[in-house]
Each structure stands twice: as structure tokens, then as C-alpha cells.
Amino acid sequence: MTKSDLIEAVAAKGSLTKDKASIVVNSIFDMMVEALKKGDRIEIRNFGNFTVRKYPAYTGRNPKTGKPVSVGEKSMPFFKVGLGLKAKVDKK
């Protein structure tokens, strides 16, 4: 499923136009990006939490040449699956 499939599904289920559905879907993901940019944590019950994790700088190696390269510190988004969804995905 892509974002446009999601928009279509929301339009059908919520009986609203595709334009309106795309406002709903896009504002959700835009907001999440903005929150993460600020380093905020996002908590969606029964879905999961998004947090930003900071990773320290380290010296890596170019796997092709074996040359050491320094990798600067970086921030990465991290998703922790919520309990409800975790169980739903793994239902036996």
C-alpha cells in the first residue's frame, strides 16, 4: 500500500472526496515529520511511538577499500511498535 492507496481507502471509508482525504493523510505525515524535526516524541496509542535517537560519531570503514572513514554524529527516527499492533501483526 502506498500513500495514494491510503488516501483512496480513507476517501471510500470516510465517504469524503479524494482531495479532502489527501488533506487528512498528508497533514498527519507532515505533522509527524515536523514533530520529529523538533526532536519531539510521537505517541499513537495501539499503533506505536516514534522517537528520535541520537547516535555518536564513530570511525567506520569503507567496505570496498578498507579505508577508515569518520562518520559524524547523527539523529535517526526510531519506531517502537505498540502492543495492540504488535499482537495484530503476529496473530497466529
Binding site: M1, T2, K3, L6, A9, V10, K13, G14, V24, V25, I28, F29, I44, N46, F47, G84, L85, K88, V89, K91
Partner: peptide, 18 residues
Amino acid sequence: IVFETLKDTLAKSEKVKI
């Protein structure tokens, strides 16, 4: 509806690409 759709899709082991 958005989050329910995401959850139902993932429950079917279908990938979601945003």
C-alpha cells in the same frame, strides 16, 4: 480511519510505503 487502515493493512502482512 487512517490509523485503522494502516493497522489492517499491516495485519495482512502487506507493506505500507509512505
